[in-house]
Amino acid sequence: MAVSSRQNQNMMNLIRKVHGLVERPDLTKHRQSQDRIGAILGTEKGIAYEETEVDGMSCEWVKVERAHLKRYVILYCHGGGYSTGSMVYARTLTTKLAESTGMDVFCFNYRLAPECKFPAAAEDAMKAWNYLMYLGYGARDVIVAGDSAGGNLALSLTLKLKDEGRMLPRGLALMSPWTDLTKSGKSYQTRSSVDPVLDHEYLDRMIENYAGGMELTNPYISPLFGKLEGLPPVYIQVGDNELLLSDSTQLHKNLVKADVSARIDIYKGMWHVFQMSPLKNAYDAMNKIAEFIFDICR
């Protein structure tokens, strides 16, 4: 059933209120609120959550408790502006990913800003990648996925692997990726009044926390400015009511220009990482990600 514009506006108002309750200037409380939401809304029956540690870094396997495809694995980079978020909060996404693909999902708690600025998160992403290689997965057995800052991290990791001459993952699945910390896209103006999740004040705070005083066009900080030639297939999902819309549409254009196989789906009336919500659109979007992954794994 189609959602009317009024219903959609009501939903966005609700999302705005919920996000306001979670987001707090006190980062510790903000992080705790997110973890509570992840534990309540993300944890499902029929899914196993197995904690492990990699070189002092907390990590989590999310696995369906049924016969499933174990040849491939999804390395998941959580969002949160590089200052918040965790593997528990990410269960609102990793659980859906495990269910829709039948694949094991590996998520990790990278070090957060402002306590640990760039390149701490990028170093931890490489640590997680190297751990999967140590377990015996080949690079082509891994799909790297992420939302928001996690989409940035997924791209940054892949660019680093490419620059080091290493084998690249089979593909990238990105939800509302934050690719441009210079905020140069048109949507930063055209969507600022409608985005129920993000605003300029929040983004500026996250940028300062993570990369204050650094060159924001550094491709490992803003992958939009990276040399994208040779990257594996990329699938992008973004809502058309979000501040970061341009981060996705321009990334897609740059990927196509670099002759990379790239697809983008822009979801009308949707907001930043809407896939977290318990909505039909969210489950449909996850099924689209599963289709992309199955397609590149054939």
Results as ranks from 00 to 15, higher is better:
S83W: 05
S58K: 14
G85Y: 06
G102R: 01
S58V: 03
T52Q: 10
A98S: 07
G79R: 03
A90S: 14
I47G: 00
K96S: 10
V73L: 03
Y82I: 01
S100P: 02
V62K: 08
A67W: 09
K45Q: 15
Y72A: 11
E65A: 12
L97N: 06
D104P: 05
A48E: 15
K45L: 11
H78A: 05
G102I: 10
V88R: 13
A67M: 02
K63Y: 01
K45S: 11
V105H: 01
E53W: 01
A90R: 09
V54C: 02
C59Q: 11
L69F: 08
Y82F: 15
A48P: 00
I40N: 07
E51H: 15
K45Y: 10
E50Y: 00
Y82A: 02
Y89F: 15
T94Y: 09
V62P: 02
E65S: 12
T84G: 00
V105N: 05
G42L: 01
T52L: 15
A98Q: 00
H68F: 12
T52D: 07
G81A: 09
G46P: 03
L75A: 07
D55I: 01
Y89G: 12
S100K: 09
L41N: 07
C77V: 09
K63M: 12
V105G: 04
M87D: 02
S100L: 08
Y72T: 07
G81R: 00
Y82H: 14
V64G: 03
G56Q: 00
K63S: 14
E60Y: 03
L93W: 05
W61C: 03
E99D: 08
A39V: 11
D55P: 05
G80W: 07
I74W: 12
V105R: 05
E50C: 06
V73D: 01
V54K: 07
M103P: 05
S83M: 10
V73W: 00
L97E: 05
T95L: 09
M103V: 03
K70C: 10
V73I: 13
V54G: 04
S86A: 04
K96M: 06
T94F: 11
A67T: 12
G81S: 03
K70D: 13
E53M: 14
E53G: 02
E44S: 13
G85D: 12
H78M: 09
H68L: 00
Y89Q: 07
G102S: 07
E44Y: 09
I40V: 13
E99P: 00
G81K: 08
T84M: 02
I40W: 13
K45A: 14
Y76R: 06
V62D: 09
T43W: 08
G46E: 11
V62M: 06
E53P: 01
T84Q: 03
D104L: 03
Y72G: 00
V54T: 08
E60T: 13
L41I: 03
V54L: 13
V73A: 01
L97I: 13
G79N: 01
